[in-house]
């Protein structure tokens, strides 16, 4: 379904998406903040992002840069002291930030589903997995117990659980890590949502299983024409599974573009640093792995100017005072005063 965009301000920069696609989710100037004793934590600080129908977008960045809080803002599930104080999140003609609790309940699980990082803790230990899969369908699709059960068995089969009938009444602890994540994926896809938010879906898994799970999610999403937002810090996932990638730093977007372009020609020094810190097959034994010096800024008292200047090797006076906006460079956009021909980085 196309979003009614006539009422919103036009966002000029869309980050290299195919022009014929329509945005499914439009985040405009989102500010999510937490009130703490130390002060106001600005977890998401003016993020604008469009997600186009059918695409897989990777959202990358260090821990604490606001990736997960962006997802929780979309779901309306921010922890108690957190609030999306400004901005808009438009989805299927509604601003999710203004939806009532009841409206959000109808959207969650049915229109937007979420896959969590650690299935062992994200699934109820005292309920059989069959019941947990059926539950969402009973809530949203108003299926009876028997129908939901049949659908759940189909889903289990579809996500690659062997002998689903026998496994239906098992508890989550009786599954291996990869199988647990398959169960969670079955739950997420059960109501055929339009948008899938996957928050580090493979971080808890073995490397060999990661690829299977990513392929599964990608395959299922393509099959259903679903849009997916992958939150990750793993550039390998981005390279292998995403169409576009958005890089976040200190609650802001610093670079966005098609995966190939961003990975091969990173414009922002932060993106370059992230890519440079990925171990490469070409590095020699004994080489030190590149790391970005310093720590992410304190989100309570953000620096003026570019949020990255404290750690940036290229920073000058302008970077310390003026905050750069996203500008178009080739197919991508980056927010940096110092965009220059890309260094030779291992990608």
């Amino acid at each position: 379904m196309a979003t009614d965009t006539s009422s919103q301000p036009e966002i000029p920069l869309t980050g290299g998406a195919a022009p014929d696609r329509k945005p499914l989710l439009r985040i405009h100037e989102l500010h999510t903040q937490f009130e703490t004793k130390q002060g106001t934590v600005r977890a998401v600080d003016g993020l604008s992002l469009d997600l186009y129908e059918g695409e897989v977008l990777g959202l990358v960045g260090e821990s604490g840069c606001g990736k997960t809080m962006t997802a929780l803002s979309i779901m309306g599930l921010l922890p108690g002291n957190g609030q999306a104080v400004a901005g808009e999140i438009n989805f299927e003609g509604k601003n999710l930030l203004q939806c009532s609790g009841e409206e959000m309940k109808k959207i969650r699980g049915a229109r937007i589903a979420m896959v969590f990082q650690e299935p062992m803790t994200a699934l109820t230990p005292t309920m059989t997995i069959g019941r947990q899969i059926s539950e969402a369908m009973e809530i949203h699709l108003a299926l009876g117990r028997e129908e939901a059960r049949e659908r759940a068995l189909e889903l289990l089969d579809h996500v690659g659980i062997p002998s689903p009938r026998a496994r239906f009444d098992n508890y989550i602890h009786q599954f291996s890590g990869g199988m647990r994540q398959r169960v969670m994926i079955a739950i997420a896809f059960s109501c055929q949502p339009r948008l899938l938010l996957a928050d580090e879906p493979t971080t808890a898994l073995d490397v060999t299983v990661q690829a299977q799970i990513l392929d599964l999610i990608k395959h299922l999403a393509q099959e259903a024409g679903m849009t997916a937002l992958f939150i990750t810090h793993d550039m390998g996932i981005v390279a292998g599974s995403c169409d576009r990638v958005a890089v976040m730093y200190a609650g802001r977007m610093v670079e966005i573009g098609p995966v190939d372009d961003v990975l091969l020609n990173p414009r922002h020094p932060y993106t370059q640093g992230l890519l440079g810190s990925v171990p490469s097959l070409e590095s020699k034994p004994g080489d030190r792995l590149y790391s970005i010096s310093g720590l992410p800024p304190d989100l309570v008292s953000l620096p003026t100017g570019c949020k990255f200047w404290l750690r940036c090797p290229l920073a000058d006076d302008r970077c310390r005072e003026d905050e750069p906006e996203l500008e178009q460079y080739g197919q991508s956009q980056a927010a940096c005063w110092k965009v220059m021909p890309p260094r030779d980085v291992a990608a």
């Binding site: 779901m75 599930l77 959000m104 309940k105 109808k106 959207i107 969650r108 699980g109 049915a110 589903a113 979420m114 969590f116 803790t121 994200a122 699934l123 109820t124 230990p125 539950e135 969402a136 809530i139 949203h140 969670m184 739950i187």
Partner: peptide, 10 residues
Amino acid sequence: FIEAERALGA
């Protein structure tokens, strides 16, 4: 899992 349950719209 309580949060996941909320994310399902329960």
